[in-house]
């Protein structure tokens, strides 16, 4: 249950994706969720290691993104993000039935689905590359939550690999776009 709150916070932060420091904010939320899982679980070593990995990956990316000039979202983008995010949240609440899943798991599943859907939506509607990157990071965080919820190690490893790929490509592309080697 502890990871449902960070999940909803991630989704909310992606929906309202006008934040300048969106990526450190979401990285901090994931670390919070992992540390909460470490407090809950019997084996706290792996979540702590994962939290360390997230910090090690997010900090340099946040530093790189801070050098980019982030354009605030236009009114149209904000309306699409907020309206679409609310719509997707309602859709996720309707799609996850009450009877099949226990009362503890349902909010977490909804939070993970909402984080993924809203992150993909933000990556699609934002024109700023920083906003797109923050949206994708939020969606990957949602996948991490979903994998942790389902207890699937393979999906968790895949999500971590996706996070690594996101960091790598963001470094390569955004760095070139940022320092004027490419026409944005």
């Amino acid at each position: 249950m502890a990871s449902a709150l960070p999940g909803l916070l991630i989704a909310a932060s992606v929906v309202l994706s006008g934040l300048r420091w969106g990526l450190p904010w979401q990285g901090g939320l994931v670390v919070l969720a992992l540390l909460a899982a470490a407090l809950d679980g019997a084996a706290p070593v792996r979540p702590c290691l994962a939290a360390l990995f997230v910090v090690a990956g997010t900090a340099p990316l946040a530093w790189g993104l801070a050098r980019l000039e982030d354009r605030p979202p236009a009114p149209g983008e904000r309306i699409s993000g907020v309206g679409g995010g609310l719509l997707l949240t309602i859709l996720a609440v309707l799609a996850v039935p009450r009877g099949l899943i226990d009362a503890v798991g349902r909010p977490e599943l909804i939070a993970a689905l909402v984080a993924i859907l809203c992150g993909v939506l933000a990556a699609a509607v934002r024109r700023s590359v920083v906003g797109q990157c923050a949206g994708l990071a939020g969606a990957v965080n949602g996948l991490l939550l979903l994998a942790g919820l389902a207890g699937r190690d393979a999906v968790l490893a895949g999500a971590v690999a996706l996070q690594g790929a996101l960091l790598l490509v963001a470094f390569v592309c955004l760095r070139r776009i940022a320092w004027g080697r490419e026409v944005a």
Partner: peptide
């Protein structure tokens, strides 16, 4: 996407392709 991104002069195209692919995977895996 990585192959496109590391090519000189195609960082923007690589980023767009990467964004599209990652969005697709993030929907397909769940």
């Amino acid at each position: 996407a990585l192959a496109t991104a590391v090519t000189r002069g195609a960082a923007r195209a690589g980023w767009d392709l990467f964004r599209l692919s990652l969005s697709g995977i993030l929907l397909a895996v769940p």
